[in-house]
Design a protein around this nucleic acid. Sequence first.
DNA 1: TTATATACAAACAGGAATGTATGTAAAGAG
DNA 2: CTCTTTACATACATTCCTGTTTGTATATAA
Lengths: 207, 207
Amino acid sequence: MVRKTKEDAELTRQKIVDAARTVFLARGVSRSTLEHIASQADVTRGAVYWHFKNKTEIFHAIREQVFLPLIDRMDDTLAISAENSQNPLDQIEASMCHTIQELNDNIEMREIYEIMMIKCEYVDEFALVLHQIMNNCSSLVEKIEAAYERAQSLNLLGSTLTPGALALDTHLFFGGLLHMWVKDADGSKFRYQAVDLIKSHIKLRRK
Amino acid sequence: MVRKTKEDAELTRQKIVDAARTVFLARGVSRSTLEHIASQADVTRGAVYWHFKNKTEIFHAIREQVFLPLIDRMDDTLAISAENSQNPLDQIEASMCHTIQELNDNIEMREIYEIMMIKCEYVDEFALVLHQIMNNCSSLVEKIEAAYERAQSLNLLGSTLTPGALALDTHLFFGGLLHMWVKDADGSKFRYQAVDLIKSHIKLRRK
DNA sequence: TTATATACAAACAGGAATGTATGTAAAGAG
DNA sequence: CTCTTTACATACATTCCTGTTTGTATATAA
């Protein structure tokens, strides 16, 4: 076969990652073999083993490609508000709506979320991915809490709950929403009204 | 080998189910083999194949054993309140707290929840389990909504949101809480304060 | 221009898991 | 007391998947 340039090789690598996403989604991570992935990418297992040590490495490549950027962007949306004079409650709402919008628009991200949530077993090597996710969540909760604190000091809150309690409630709500969004395959129950649910959730806190 | 009585056979079956739960939890459903399960149960694969057609059947046996009863009990807690004069908000709160308490006390239930949430890939045969769960959720949301309606007519609600919106928010909150409860292995972040989180959540709705 | 490293394809060897088929001792029916 | 069925254990055949090894054409460096 023909030897490829570096750009060609990178393209092959990307083809493999994309193929793996498709295969993982359809068959689940465990039931996906490297042969499945290779043929989906129109290469042989040789190419896969050249670019990746094993299936786990491909999994991490997928995850890092789209999952981490999303977290960063959520962080950003909330962080901006610290210096911004905008209503913190609006900021929290916008942050969540933005993520939902991203899931709506970005097919790859949607597929990766689905893989991570319901097409993957968190044992052995994958167990520590869960810890990473939990840690990311922790920092997110802190950001949300800070926003609620600002809302409190601006006298925008309508309840006596502490910003910490409000932040945890919001975090659990959004975690539940993301799960339901993914599992609600036909979209009838949650997917289409996700933004409304977010607005209701925030409205409950407004004065 | 010795032929067993019917009672012995039923005991063997139960041993296999228990063993499967342990193995599924430790290795994930996909990576668990019938040999793993058999040796954990101190029998051979022959015994497993006698009692179950395949791994999927064992999975369903586990699920039906503990998961369905829990849903029923949540239903009950909420249904009782329809005829009861008790505060509907208290009933919703109690219903969720009760489930958390059950998870705290009942090791088997806790393990099964963990298997269903993060040790199982919902593809092929398992995909329809997700649909069942979603359907159960739908009926639960309706029960919660009915309780909020009663609370509204008793003038107990402090917000202008509709009972439907409140119910969905509660449902998403609780779904998120259950997930975090399971994933929070060391218990520091959510498990120990789950009841407080529930009370805060409901407090936000009280007048 | 030549030599070496790259980017794969193809072939190989193995272990592991599944399902089935067979064997068997005792329980239970008649 | 026999005969059949039950409740398994054991052995077997087959399929799959993995990781490694080998081969090879071509970029690319020198």
